[in-house]
Design a protein around this nucleic acid. Structure first.
Lengths: 151, 151
DNA sequence: CATATATTCTACTTATACGATAGGATAACA
DNA sequence: TGTTATCCTATCGTATAAGTAGAATATATG
């Protein structure tokens, strides 16, 4: 499970991606309202995303946050990792949050380790190839589909 | 991330699989010692596995736990789920621990939902096709490999 | 039947992380 | 200079994970 923080981050960045690059800037309060994210919590999240170079910010009136890279180049895996969400199922197979099992005599001889590495690779493969732009495209497809099919 | 409980469960069942079906029975204390799992904690875990029908138990001297099914038919996904470990990255894409996002207007229109479903499917595909027997086979392969290569 | 052995069951503890909030400091624009 | 927005540090409650304690129950064996 990834923390809610990661989910909020993806939602917020999706909002920013939709106005990229013109205008580009959105205020915390605006995003919080639009995406139904607690404002103060979102503030902390955006700060974190700024510290890893995903977004930039401007203070003062007409200030706000904006993407520092094209939404084509921001993958879900980047966002999840930046917000502390491990993708792996155990710390011992995590690339970014690695921690050895205290009780494990040898990682190289552990069958579970090997299997969970495969799981992680499969997960990362999907998350790393899905960009913010892809997310948005998916949603417009889903919307069209639901409109044509019925309601 | 799956809880440590799930990892312990897999280790314990691996021990039981190795003595299946002859003898078949192992005491908590024995498994705890062999796998370096806190005894009282393992006790709770095995009880849980018994309640979902993965293992059976016998009280008294020469008692202990044993597999109720062939280790060929016990998949890692079964064990993880039985011990409360969600495989999905968000509750809204979990098959066994489903919970809707409070802030989500429509799951069917959510791009993230769609992507994370793919991730879950990929993960489950691997975990469901890996049995205890497979785990053990993998480990003996890894052992042989490490012995022939060098140390 | 008594005793030793092992599981069963309930309850508790402790630590940590998640999710969220408060409030003042700082920067920028008009 | 006032207003708007981010910046920053500190705090807090709650849930869950991880592990512990101890008595009750069942069963083999002498």
């Amino acid at each position: 499970m990834i923390p809610r923080k990661s989910k909020y981050a993806i939602q917020a960045l999706k909002s920013l991606a939709k106005v990229y690059p013109e205008k580009g800037r959105l205020a915390i309060a605006f995003i919080a309202d639009q995406e139904r994210i607690p404002k103060k919590f979102l503030e902390a999240i955006l700060l974190q995303l700024r510290n890893v170079g995903i977004v930039g910010s401007k203070m003062g009136p007409a200030g706000g946050y904006y993407l520092l890279k094209s939404p084509d180049d921001i993958a879900l895996s980047d966002i999840i990792r930046a917000t502390g969400g491990p993708i792996a199922l155990l710390p011992c197979v995590s690339l970014n949050f690695y921690e050895a099992c205290e009780d494990c005599p040898s990682e190289e001889l552990c069958g579970l380790h090997e299997v969970l590495e495969e799981v992680r690779e499969a997960s990362v493969r999907i998350l790393a190839k899905t960009s913010l732009t892809d997310l948005i495209k998916r949603e417009s497809k889903l919307l069209k589909l639901s409109q044509s099919t019925d309601n």
